[in-house]
Simulated scan of single mutants.
Amino acid sequence: MAKDELKKGDQVTWRSHGEDVHGTVEEKITERTEAAGRTVAASKDEPQYRVRSDKTGHDAVHKPGALRRD
């Protein structure tokens, strides 16, 4: 595992609608799938992460570059 790779349970922050959102990594997605109400075109070479907002409890999916570890 890469040193900067996120894992389930990590606390992260991302930008949504001009505001910082805090939440938790729920899973690493490494294949094309449906998540958070949309098709996620992830792969082993380009993974994405399903995260859950601490404030709303809603799920979102983001590429690693959009997430900052808290």
Rank of each mutant, 00 (worst) to 15 (best):
M1G: 13
K8M: 01
Y49R: 10
V61S: 05
D45S: 15
K63D: 07
H58K: 15
G57S: 08
E26N: 04
H22R: 13
E5F: 04
K55W: 02
E34I: 04
H58T: 15
E26T: 06
H62K: 14
V21E: 13
E46F: 13
M1P: 05
A2V: 12
A41V: 13
S43F: 04
A36E: 00
V61F: 01
T30P: 11
H22K: 06
E5Q: 14
D10E: 06
L6V: 06
H62T: 01
S16P: 06
T13H: 14
I29V: 10
G37F: 04
V21H: 10
V21K: 12
M1V: 14
H58M: 05
K63C: 05
V12W: 03
T24A: 00
E34M: 09
T24L: 11
T24R: 02
I29T: 01
Q48T: 00
K8R: 15
G57I: 10
H22I: 07
E31A: 15
R38Q: 15
A60C: 08
W14Y: 14
T39Y: 03
T30F: 01
K7Y: 02
L6R: 02
V25Q: 07
R68K: 10
R69Y: 02
E27S: 05
G57D: 07
E26L: 09
Q48A: 12
R52C: 03
D45L: 10
L6W: 02
A60F: 07
A41Y: 15
G65K: 13
Y49S: 00
A42K: 03
D20A: 10
K44I: 13
K63S: 14
T56N: 11
V12Y: 00
R69T: 04
E5N: 09
K44E: 14
S53K: 09
Q11G: 00
K7Q: 01
K44F: 12
K7E: 03
D59S: 07
A36S: 12
V12S: 01
K3T: 15
A60H: 09
G23T: 02
D20K: 11
S43Q: 04
E31G: 04
A36R: 00
R32N: 01
A36H: 02
V21Q: 09
E27A: 10
S16F: 02
R52M: 08
G23R: 03
M1W: 13
L67A: 00
I29E: 08
S16V: 08
P47D: 12
D4G: 05
E46Q: 13
